[in-house]
Design a protein around this nucleic acid. Structure first.
Lengths: 231, 231
DNA sequence: TAGATTGTTAATCGATTAACAATC
DNA sequence: TAGATTGTTAATCGATTAACAATC
C-alpha cells in the first residue's frame, strides 16, 4: 500500500482503541477480535479492521489481535511512545480540570506548566504543577521542547494567546475558546468548543420534525404579499 | 424540498454561525454575506449557504443575510428559542467549569442543578446553583422538565449515571466520561472525551511520515523468518 | 441595467459498509 | 481439515466543492 491517504476520522478513533486496550490489558485479556472491540467501542468491526489496516497488519487471521502488541503499535502510530510535553494556558476551572485530569489519568502526556496572568494565581500550584505568568512561556517551551498547547483563555484573548504560542514554535493547539484561531498552515488546531457541543446536542433533544415544520409555516406567512390589509 | 436528509455536520456548524451572528449584532452589523461569514467561521461560503438551505431561504440575493433575521431563524432551528433546562452530574473541576461557563456566557441554556454524591459538596453552590445528592435527581428533572444532561463523572460511574438519567426521561447526554454509554435508541449521546481530543491532536504534532516509516521498518524486521542464526 | 450574491443542481471527494478471499 | 477472523477490494453512502441560473 503505497501511501494511501489516512482518514482523519480513523485518527480520531485510535485513542478510543488505545483506551479499550489499556482496560483489557489491566484485566489480563491477551487476545481480542474486531467484533469484541466493536462491542466495547461502538464502532463497527469492519471499520476497526480498516482503520488498523492503514498502518499495517497487526492481527492474526482466525484468532484476533494480541492486546499488548496492538497497544504498542497504536502508541507508536499516534506518537505516544515518547511522553508528550504539553502546556496549558488559562488557569480557570477548565484549565485546572484538564491539568488535574491529564496529570492523574493520562500517562501519555506531561503537563509541564500552566500559564495565567492573574496575579493571585501566579506561583500557586495545580497538582505540583506551577502556575506561571505568560512572560515565562518562551523559556518553558524551549526548556521542555513543547510542541502542544491547550488554550482555555476567554474568547477575546484567544488570538493573541495563539500568536504567542505559535511564535514560540507550538505546532498543535487544543482550543477551548469560542473563537476561530488564525494560524500558519503548519500549525494544527482542534477546536473543542463545549458550548457548541451542547447546543448541537439540544437540536436532537426535542421534537425536531415539529420545530422545522413550524419554521416552514412561518416562512409561508412571511411571504404573504405585503398589501394593505383591513384589521 | 421534501424532507431532504439534514447533514449531521451541518447541525454542528449552526451554533458557530449563531455565535458569529451574536457578535455581529453586538457590533451593530445588520447585513452579512456568506463570504464574510466564511472569513469569520473558517467554513467555506458554499458550505454555509448549503447548510442554511436545508432549512429555508433566509438571505437576499445580491445583498446577503440580515443578521438579526438569520439569528432568529438559527435559534428556532436548533430549538434555542425556549431556554433549555440542563442538569450537570459531577461537581468536580470540569462540572464546575461547565456550570460556571454556561451560566455566565450561554444565554440559551439554564443549568438547573448540579448533582454529586460527595457529602462535603452537598448544599454548596456553584454560581447560585445548588449541588444536590443524586437521590434528588428525579424530583428536579420532573419539576423543570429536563431533557438534557451533562455527565462529568469518573469512567467507572458513567454507565450507572446514564441508566439513572435515562430512566428519568433524559433524551440527550453530553458525555465527558471516557467510556462508551449504552442507551436506548431514542436517547442521543455526544461524546466529548477530552483525552481523545488531546491524543488525536498529538498525532499531528510531530513528524507523522517519519513515525509511520519507522513502524513499517519494524514490521519488516519482525517478519524475518525465524530460522537459527549464527550470532 | 449592471453588479452582486443567493439558492440549487451537478461533480467530486472521502468515509463507511458489504463482501469475500486469504490464512491462521 | 473445519471453523474463525483478518485484511483488502468493491459498492454505497454522505458530505464537500464547483458551477451557475435566479434574482435582488
Amino acid at each position: 500500500m503505497p501511501h494511501q491517504n489516512i482518514s482523519k476520522t480513523a485518527i480520531k478513533r485510535l485513542p478510543v482503541y488505545l483506551r479499550i486496550l489499556d482496560q483489557l490489558i489491566r484485566r489480563d485479556v491477551t487476545l481480542i477480535s474486531s467484533r469484541e472491540l466493536s462491542n466495547e467501542s461502538g464502532f463497527t468491526a469492519e471499520q476497526i479492521r480498516k482503520d488498523l489496516a492503514y498502518f499495517g497488519a497487526f492481527g492474526t487471521r482466525g484468532a484476533g489481535y494480541d492486546t499488548a502488541f496492538l497497544r504498542d503499535k497504536i502508541i507508536k502510530i499516534i506518537g505516544l511512545d515518547v511522553k508528550t510535553n504539553v502546556i496549558v494556558i488559562g488557569a480557570g476551572n477548565l484549565g485546572t480540570a484538564l491539568t488535574r485530569y491529564n496529570t492523574a489519568k493520562n500517562p501519555y502526556v506531561r503537563i509541564v506548566a500552566v500559564f495565567d496572568n492573574a496575579p493571585d494565581l501566579i506561583d500557586q500550584k495545580i497538582e505540583e504543577i506551577n502556575i506561571m505568568p505568560l512572560d515565562k512561556l518562551s523559556e518553558v517551551v524551549k526548556k521542555h521542547d513543547v510542541k502542544v498547547s491547550i488554550i482555555t483563555v476567554p474568547a477575546d484573548a484567544a488570538q493573541q494567546t495563539t500568536d504567542l504560542v505559535v511564535s514560540n514554535g507550538i505546532k498543535a493547539i487544543l482550543n477551548f475558546a469560542p473563537a476561530k484561531l488564525n494560524v500558519p498552515s503548519d500549525v494544527h488546531v482542534h477546536n473543542a468548543d463545549l458550548t457548541i457541543e451542547l447546543q448541537s446536542l439540544i437540536y436532537y433533544s426535542s421534537a425536531e420534525e415539529e420545530r422545522l415544520a413550524r419554521l416552514k409555516h412561518e416562512a409561508k406567512v412571511k411571504k404573504t404579499p405585503k398589501t394593505f390589509t383591513i384589521e
